[in-house]
């Protein structure tokens, strides 16, 4: 179908984008790859009066090794995450998650910043940044600020971003070869996850869940259990604790809780296997 009419402002810098947001207030939306926003606009579920096109800010598209962490520009496309050698080495979970978003054509357009700012609990990248303990950087009229991933997602499609702020980069601590896993359960490859789990082991093991509540969230009970040395099965048994899963045609809440346990258990086993493999290679 066809979007309702709107005005288009093309921003040539992050500052210009923020200025446009300040000028147009709540009527304006940022347009990056457009793969979260345009589908809603075509169905006329969203009808912003002004779109601020930030898709041309190529200098905001990068994956960079910054020593202790990897910095990813907010306009980096899923495809570039998927194929980044820096991520493959230092945060392979993020590359693996990106590789399973939507389909190849979607991954050629969609951006990490656009996906995170959309705040959809059914999308994959929020879980990845939660599991990786990433820090998000936003710029607004008053300058830039850092937002830890765990403070970023506030509710259904609601984030810590202010209406006049733009995400500029995501800082991801290097994972130093620690085990990880991404489990996504859906009915067709191109579909959103019915339930998913992103797991990153390391000094602070993190387990994040997809589509298990109104917002992307971590499975804190499981994380504590893992930290306390519980087996994957034991840790997974509490994966859905504290969640209020949504209900839809694919799954009711009880089934989602069950799936979360299976995904987390399988993910913990896989992650532990990767840790072991990585540990061995360090020894030899």
């Amino acid at each position: 179908m066809i979007p309702a009419p709107f005005d288009l402002v093309t921003a040539d810098s992050a500052e210009a984008a923020v200025a446009a947001l300040v000028e147009h207030g709540d009527d304006a939306k940022l347009l990056a790859g457009g793969h979260s926003l345009l589908p809603l606009m075509k169905l006329r579920l969203a009808a912003p009066a002004v779109l601020v096109d930030i898709g041309r800010l190529r200098d905001r598209s990068f994956v960079r090794d910054d020593g202790a962490h990897v910095t990813v520009g907010a306009l980096t496309r899923h495809r570039d995450l998927e194929t980044s050698p820096v991520l493959a080495e230092h945060a392979p979970l993020l590359a693996a998650v990106a590789a399973q978003i939507g389909d190849p054509a979607v991954r050629h357009r969609g951006t990490i910043g656009g996906s995170l700012a959309h705040g959809d609990p059914a999308s994959d990248l929020p879980a990845a940044v939660l599991a990786l303990g990433a820090v998000l950087v936003a710029v607004g009229p008053g300058g830039s600020r850092e937002i830890p991933a765990e403070d970023f997602f506030h509710g259904f499609m609601d984030t810590a971003l202010h209406a006049d702020e733009m995400l500029t980069e995501i800082r991801i601590p290097k994972t130093a070869g620690a085990g990880w896993s991404f489990q996504k359960f859906n009915r067709r490859a191109q579909d959103w996850a019915i339930v998913g789990a992103a797991i990153q082991l390391g000094p602070t093991p993190r387990v994040a869940l997809i589509n298990m509540d109104m917002q992307p969230l971590r499975a804190s009970a499981t994380e504590s259990a893992v930290a306390g040395g519980a087996s994957p099965a034991e840790a997974a048994a509490v994966a859905a604790e504290g969640c209020s899963p949504p209900e839809d045609l694919n799954a009711d809440a009880a089934y989602r809780r069950h799936l979360a346990q299976v995904m987390v258990r399988r993910g913990l086993v896989e992650a532990a296997g990767r840790s072991a493999a990585s540990g061995q290679s360090t020894v030899t």
Partner: peptide
């Protein structure tokens, strides 16, 4: 050179 879904891209983009 890359596949995209032209129904989900504005001509202006």
């Amino acid at each position: 050179g890359e596949a995209v879904k032209s129904c989900t891209v504005l001509a202006a983009q």
